Simulated scan of single mutants.
Amino acid sequence: MLNTYTSYQLIARDIGKALERVEKQPIIERETEYYLKNITKVKTIDEFVKNDRLFKYAMKAHGLQDMAYAKAFMVKALKEGVADKDSFANKLTDKRYAEFVKSFNFAELGERTTVFNKAQQGAVDKYLLRVGMDGGNTQSEAVQKEVKYYLDNIVKVTSAKDLMADARLYAFAMKSFGIEASIPNKEMMEKVLAGGVRDPKSFANEMADKRYAAFATAFNFEAYSADATTINPSQQPSTDKFLRQTLEEDAGKDNEGVRLALYFERKASSIGSFYDVLADPALAKVVRTALGLPEAFASADIDRQVKLFEEKLKISDFSNPKKLGDFLKRFTSLWEINNPSSPVQASVGILFGMPPAYGVSTDLMFAMQKLRF
């Protein structure tokens, strides 16, 4: 049996292919097809939770499948939305609930929730608001003509280059976000769109004027490529999340350490502090294991745990692919020692340096000791 590190690497080094294999599983293919065919028909929270098949798919996509039975709880979260920092979802320690509500934001978008796209309806809403603020008539023939042209053509745009090539679309989009003064500065806008918003240090995120980051969020070619102008968080992103969730679950059936490593890799870039780590039992388990801490340490004072983590690790390292890779190598190696994939062979392998497919090799143990965080 392959050890934890090797099993993790076989999946992590080509996540795309691993997800394709999951997607081709008959039951997964069938459920995904049903979901995409029917989610756009959902107009209300009530319709959503009453369709058990759709609701369970969506819950699993966000890692909340164990709470699919708690419909009253989820209805409360959906009704209050996430606009108010004191809303039910925002006050929950587990941030997966807030992410779920963002994906199915009925509180803000109502009947448009499952078809709303920031680059389409979102931009039009903002454009009309700007027209009104400037004293214009939003129902005038000229304005409605621009809206129609925009909606008819924005869906054909598959790149930042396409957007800027159509002066009419580009001007509409820029005015929507109140940054029409920057229309001539295409070089800057190319940087805004190319960097996206996933990286906190991207060009748009580091600009003092947050309207540019909002623009990059709506026209997120960096994250969604050709799908940026058609994507809806309740549609394709949810199916992508479902496939990733299934991949991790399948890996966990053979080796829980592999599932934890894949999960940590997925969440790493969103970790803002070690308090975030402690708020998520799975993330906390990975960190404790990587640092060689006993499970009993989980019951220690939270501030004390955070202090120790900060002494040993840097949060910024989790956003660095190389350093994250080293960290997960250490985790999977220590996990293997504590949870041998093949107990008898693992112990022999450690003693006599058998091939790394069996337990943990002597070379790997020495390499692990040299890792620095």
Rank of each mutant, 00 (worst) to 15 (best):
S7E: 08
S7F: 03
Y8K: 06
A12N: 09
D14K: 11
G16W: 06
K17T: 13
A18C: 11
A18M: 11
V22K: 00
I27R: 13
R30D: 15
E31F: 08
E33G: 09
N38Q: 14
I39C: 04
T40P: 01
K43L: 09
I45L: 03
E47P: 06
V49N: 07
N51P: 01
R53Y: 04
G63N: 04
L64S: 04
Q65E: 14
M74C: 10
V75K: 05
A77M: 08
K79G: 04
G81T: 02
F88P: 08
F88V: 11
N90T: 02
L92P: 04
V101N: 05
K102E: 14
S103W: 04
F104C: 10
N105P: 02
E108S: 12
E108L: 14
E108M: 13
E111G: 07
E111Q: 10
A123H: 03
K126I: 13
Y127F: 15
L128H: 05
G132I: 06
D134N: 13
E146Q: 14
K148L: 12
D152M: 11
I154K: 04
V155K: 12
D162I: 01
R168Y: 01
L169A: 02
F172N: 07
A173K: 01
F177K: 06
A181S: 11
N185A: 05
N185Q: 11
M188I: 11
M188P: 06
V192P: 00
V192Y: 00
V197Q: 00
D199C: 06
F203M: 11
A204N: 10
M207G: 02
R211Y: 02
R211H: 05
F219P: 01
N220E: 03
A223S: 13
A228F: 06
T229G: 04
P233S: 14
S234R: 05
P237E: 15
F242R: 05
L247V: 00
E249F: 03
G252W: 00
K253F: 03
N255D: 13
N255Y: 02
R259C: 07
L262A: 01
S273R: 09
G292V: 05
P294E: 15
F297V: 06
A300R: 09
A300L: 12
D301A: 12
Q305M: 13
E311R: 14
L313V: 11
L313Y: 05
I315V: 15
S316W: 04
F318Y: 01
N320K: 09
K322N: 06
K323A: 08
L324F: 04
D326E: 15
W335V: 01
N339A: 07
L351D: 09
P356R: 12
V360S: 11
V360P: 07
D363M: 15
L364T: 11
F366M: 14
A367F: 10
R372S: 13
